[in-house]
Amino acid sequence: MHLDPDTRRQFEDLTLPHLDAAYNLARWLTRDDHAAQDVVQEAYLRAAKYFASFRGGDGRPWLLGIVRRASLDWLTKHRQRDEVAFNEVAHDRGDEESNPVLLAVRKWDQELVRQALIDLPRQLRETVILRELEGLTYQQIATVTEVPVGTVMSRLARGRQQLQQRLSGCPEGGVR
């Protein structure tokens, strides 16, 4: 593939500042460092290929859409089971923190938060990651994940609800 110097510069300026975001999304989707690095490399190749069709605007949602596609392809190819069943026994922390108000004051256990995120079903996980870790708007998330804004909103609500349940140790839905 050949890009002339000006186009190459434009491509670099558009995509390289978002390398962290690209890796972060790939890492949360594949749940593996090496896989994420491979996916990011593949995504940048594809992005360079599709660059001519980029219609301007914010480069981040555009690039993240390509990273997401590449991640899903990797998951399919490696037949990784997308949905990890939630192990209620392993995650049942008893009812010592079942009061939702305590959620607000409690010092969050980082490892617990990480595990709860990893365990989220993929569609909910990607929506929460794009919103909370990347700070994308609902509209941008809809573009990246190829669903209507209404679906983004319901996935975000479900994802957060599941996170709150897991973090408060009441998988049966104790947090309202």
């Binding site: 390398l19 962290d20 690209a22 890796y23 972060n24 890492r27 949360w28 994420a36 990011v40 959620l103 607000a104 004051v105 409690r106 969050w108 980082q110 938060v113 990480r114 995120l117 929460v128 909370e132 870790l133 957060r160 996170l163 709150q164 973090l167």
Partner: peptide, 15 residues
């Protein structure tokens, strides 16, 4: 509170 927990820098995987 949940949003704050998810903003922990350690959750962000930098390249």
């Amino acid at each position: 509170a949940l949003k704050t927990a998810l903003a922990l820098p350690s959750l962000y995987h930098r390249a």
